[in-house]
């Protein structure tokens, strides 16, 4: 019971954060803020994966010698049977696979962020603003029978 309470909150908070950033992304009309929301959304997806990879009493998946001082200090905190059962050569490690995946996902995230921001900058140059409402208004004005000129009106 205590364990259920001690563990459930992690996913609950992460999901709440995931949805909050998705909410920012979906509601705002500002392109930069949309990108901030998107970047946060990706980060929280990363938090979810890393939460999956946690092993109680584990350490970072960089192999250490169980006989070394560090290894022994770690083993001393845990039930020997637990270490025996879940450890690798006497040390309990976290799960490395989600770490690898999220490393990749973080990189993908920054790549998306930079391309998105570059497009936002071009929107600003073409329309004079980065609010989607202003962009829509400018497009609507331009598609009327008498277009106001090729570059549109800034800050319409």
């Amino acid at each position: 019971m205590i364990d259920a309470l001690a563990t459930g909150y992690v996913y609950a908070i992460i999901v709440a954060m995931m949805m909050a950033s998705l909410f920012v992304l979906l509601t705002t009309g500002n392109l930069i803020r949309k990108m901030i929301g998107l970047s946060l959304f990706q980060t929280t997806a990363g938090l979810f994966y890393i939460a999956l990879s946690k092993v109680g009493g584990g350490t970072a998946p960089i192999i250490i010698d169980a006989e070394s001082a560090v290894g022994q200090a770690r083993a001393a905190r845990l039930d020997p049977a637990y270490v025996e059962h879940f450890g690798v050569d006497g040390v309990v490690y976290g799960n490395p696979l989600p770490h690898v995946l999220i490393l990749t996902a973080i990189v993908v995230g920054v790549a998306t962020l930079s391309v998105g921001l570059a497009i936002a900058v071009r929107v600003r140059e073409a329309y004079g603003d980065t609010e989607l409402d202003a962009v829509r208004r400018a497009d609507a004005a331009a598609s009327e029978p008498e277009p106001p000129g090729p570059r549109g009106r800034p800050n319409a």
């Binding site: 705002t28 009309g29 500002n30 392109l31 930069i32 803020r33 990108m35 901030i36 920054v110 962020l113 930079s114 921001l117 570059a118 936002a120 900058v121 600003r124 140059e125 603003d129 980065t130 609010e131 409402d133």
Partner: peptide, 15 residues
């Protein structure tokens, strides 16, 4: 840094 650069090129507060 990239976000800062793009804010400089766009605007500073959201509607």
């Amino acid at each position: 840094l990239i976000l800062l650069g793009s804010i400089l090129l766009t605007r500073e507060s959201a509607e």
